[in-house]
Design a binder for these strands. Structure first.
Lengths: 338, 338
DNA sequence: TATATCTTGGAAAGCGCATTCCCACCCACT
DNA sequence: AGTGGGTGGGAATGCGCTTTCCAAGATATA
C-alpha cells in the first residue's frame, strides 16, 4: 500500500541504490538522465521516504527535543517559537514535551528523546534546587550517548546553554527601584525550589541589602499567573495595615505572577502603582498592551530560543555557555508615589 | 557504544526475541524468572530501545504531528497545551511545527510528518479561502496512507475535527452589542484569506444586517497583535471625524488584534470604551488581567486541543466533526457610552 | 504408556533505507 | 595498442528491533 524506495527503483528501471542516491542528498549523484527518470517515477508513485528507516540506516533521526514546563505560558511559548525559528531550514524537526511542571513527565520526555535518538535536546527552565538529580543523571546519560543538551536558564557545569543572569539583573532592578524612591518591598517569590526563582530572589535580597533595606515579606507560591493572584490576594487580606502606611512595591519572580498580582490588587480595590507598585520579570509580549505598563526585566526570549537552536546546530562541542543579561525596564507600574 | 537489545540479551543469556518480549509490551511474556534476568541486564547496561528501529519493525512510530501558525500566539499555544494534555499517558509523542503562517513551511511539515509516519496530525487554523489546494491534496494523500487528520477550525468535508462556529458566534456577539445600544461598528478583519477570518467577518456582517446596520469600515490586515495595532492606528489617523461623532465599536477578528488595537486607541489619546469600544474573539488567557476587561467570544481553547488529541486516539474512523460554539462574553471594553 | 495439546524459548526473516564494495565501462594519455 | 585513472551503476550488507514460525519440553488425555 505504501510506496517504498524499491518500488520507485523498479518503476524507474534502476537499482535501489541509485534511487536512493537520487532522492536523498548522497555524496554521489547519478547522471542527470537517470536522476530525472527516478524523480519522475517517485513523483508518479507518490513516494515518501520512511524517516524511521532512514534514521535507522543513517543512525541519525533528524530530530530535536524541546522540553518546557508549560507551552501555554508565554515565557515558554516564546522560547519555543525561537527554537523553531532557529531550526528552520536545517531539516531538523522538533519533538515537544510540555511537562506541566511534573518531574516525572520531564524524565519520561528525556527517556523518550533518548529512545528517539534526537540529535539534541533543549531544556528550558527545569533546574530545581532540590531533587533534580534524576534529571541530571538522565541528561548525563543522554550526553554520553552522543546527544547534545542545551539548557536555557541555568546550564549544568560542563554543558552548553544559555545562562540567564537572574541574580544580577534582579539586583539591578532593585537598585533602580530604590533610586526611584521605593523603600517598602514585598517579594512575590514563586516556587522557591526552582533555581530561577531562587536566583531572582537572591538578587532581590542583594539589591535590598545594598540599600540597607529588607523585604516586608517574602511570599512563596506557585510560579504561574494563578499562583500570583492567589498569593497576592492572601497577602493583601492579611496586611491591610502595611498597605495603609503607604505605597509598597511588589517584586514578582516573573511576569505572569505579576499579572496575577495586578488583578489581585485591583480586586482588593487598590491602585497600581499608587497603592501597590508592581514589577515582573521576563518581559513577555502581552505586557506591551497593559495599562499601566508593567515594569520588568527584559529577557530576549525569542532570541534565546533561537540561540539555543543554533548552539544545537553548531559544531561547538566544547562546553560553551553564553550569558544572557536581563535589562530592567522601568514603566508606569512602579512610578514612585510618596 | 550504544547498548542494543542484542547486548542485553547476551548479558542476560537469552535470545533477542525473549529480551524483546520482556522489555516491550509483547503479547507473549516469558516466565517471571527469565523476565527478571532480562530486566536486570537492561538496567545494568543502561539500555534504551531505539525508537526508530521499533517504529520500523512495528511499522508504527508513536508520533503525532501538530501544526500551528505561531506557537507564540496564545491561541495556538493554548491549543498545543491541550493537545499535549490529551495525549498524556498515551505513549504518543508530539512533533511540533510552528509555520509562521507560511504555506510552504506548512506543506513541508505535512510532508515531514508523512515521512515520519506519524499516526495522525492535528492541523490548527490553516484553511484559506484561496490557495490551500496543495495543502488539502497533501492532507488527502496523508489520509490515504493511513494517517488520521484532525482539523481544528474548519475540518475538510469527510474528515475528523472540530468545527468552530465562527460565523454563528460572531453574529450572536453583534446581536448582543446592538442590544447594548451600539450602532457604529468598525470591523478589524485580519487576513481575509483565512477561512476563520472570513467566517467571523461574515458573522459580523450578518449580525449587522439583522439590525439593519452596516459597518462604518472593514479593515483587512495581518492576523496578529502588530497587525491590529497597525491597522487601527491607520484608521484612527484617517478617521478623526468619524470618532468625533461619538463612540464607535471595533469588532476585531481575534483577541491579539484587539489588544493591538487597544494600544493603538490609547496611543491616539482616546479612551476604551468611551471613545472606542472594543471586542475580540477567542478569549485568550491574558484577557483576564486587562483593564478594562475585554469583551470577546469565548472558545474553550485548551479543551479543543484536548478533544483533538482524544479524537486522534479514539477509534472513530468515521468522519466525525464536533461543533464548537463560541460564547460571547460582554465585558467593560464594550460598555455603551451614548 | 502412548499420543495429543499447550507452553516457551530461539532462529530467522523481514521492516525500508543508506552505503560500502565491486565491477564494467569509457576516456585519456603514452 | 596498452595501461591507468575516473566514473557510474548494482549487489549485498547492516542499522536495531519485532514477529512469525519451529522445535522441544511440559502437561494432559485416553
Amino acid at each position: 500500500m505504501v510506496v517504498r524506495l524499491a518500488d520507485v527503483a523498479r518503476e524507474a528501471g534502476v537499482s535501489p541504490a541509485t534511487a536512493s542516491r537520487v532522492l536523498n542528498g548522497s555524496s554521489r549523484s547519478p547522471a542527470e538522465a537517470i536522476a530525472e527518470k527516478v524523480r519522475r517515477a517517485a513523483e508518479r508513485l507518490g513516494y515518501f521516504p520512511n524517516a524511521q528507516a532512514q534514521a535507522l540506516a543513517r543512525s541519525s533521526a533528524g530530530l530535536v527535543g524541546l522540553i518546557v514546563h508549560d507551552i501555554a505560558d508565554p515565557y515558554f511559548s516564546s522560547i519555543a517559537h525561537g527554537v523553531q525559528h532557529g531550526l528552520h531550514g536545517s531539516g531538523l524537526r522538533v519533538m515537544l514535551s510540555s511537562t506541566d511542571r511534573d518531574g516525572e513527565t520531564e524524565m519520561e520526555a528525556v527517556r523518550a528523546f533518548m529512545s528517539y535518538r534526537t540529535e539534541g535536546i533543549v531544556l528550558a527552565g527545569s533546574r530545581t534546587v532540590d531533587g533534580d538529580e534524576p534529571l541530571i543523571a538522565a541528561v548525563e546519560t543522554y550526553r554520553k550517548n552522543g546527544g547534545k543538551v542545551i539548557m536555557i536558564g541555568q546550564p549544568l557545569p560542563g554543558t552548553l546553554g544559555l545562562s540567564v543572569d537572574n541574580r544580577g539583573s534582579a539586583t539591578e532592578l532593585v537598585r533602580q527601584l530604590v533610586e526611584l524612591g521605593h523603600r517598602r518591598f514585598v517579594i512575590l517569590a514563586g516556587d522557591m525550589n526552582l533555581v530561577t526563582v531562587k536566583d531572582r530572589h537572591a538578587g532581590f535580597i542583594e539589591g535590598l541589602d545594598e540599600a540597607g533595606l529588607s523585604a516586608l515579606a517574602v511570599l512563596p507560591g506557585v510560579f504561574t499567573r494563578d499562583g500570583g493572584l492567589e498569593v497576592m490576594t492572601e497577602y493583601l487580606d492579611a496586611s491591610g495595615a502595611e498597605i495603609a502606611q503607604g505605597q509598597i512595591c511588589v517584586l514578582a519572580a516573573n511576569d505572569v505572577m505579576a499579572l496575577g498580582a495586578l488583578t489581585a490588587v485591583r480586586r482588593a480595590g487598590l491602585r497600581v502603582p499608587q497603592d501597590v507598585a508592581l514589577a515582573g520579570f521576563d518581559d513577555i509580549a502581552t505586557l506591551e498592551d497593559m495599562i499601566p505598563s508593567i515594569t520588568t526585566v527584559q529577557l530576549p526570549l525569542d532570541s534565546m530560543g533561537e540561540q539555543a537552536a543554533l548552539m544545537l546546530l553548531g559544531a561547538e562541542d566544547a562546553a560553551s555557555v553564553r550569558v544572557i543579561d536581563g535589562t530592567p525596564v522601568l514603566r508606569e507600574s512602579t512610578t514612585f508615589c510618596p
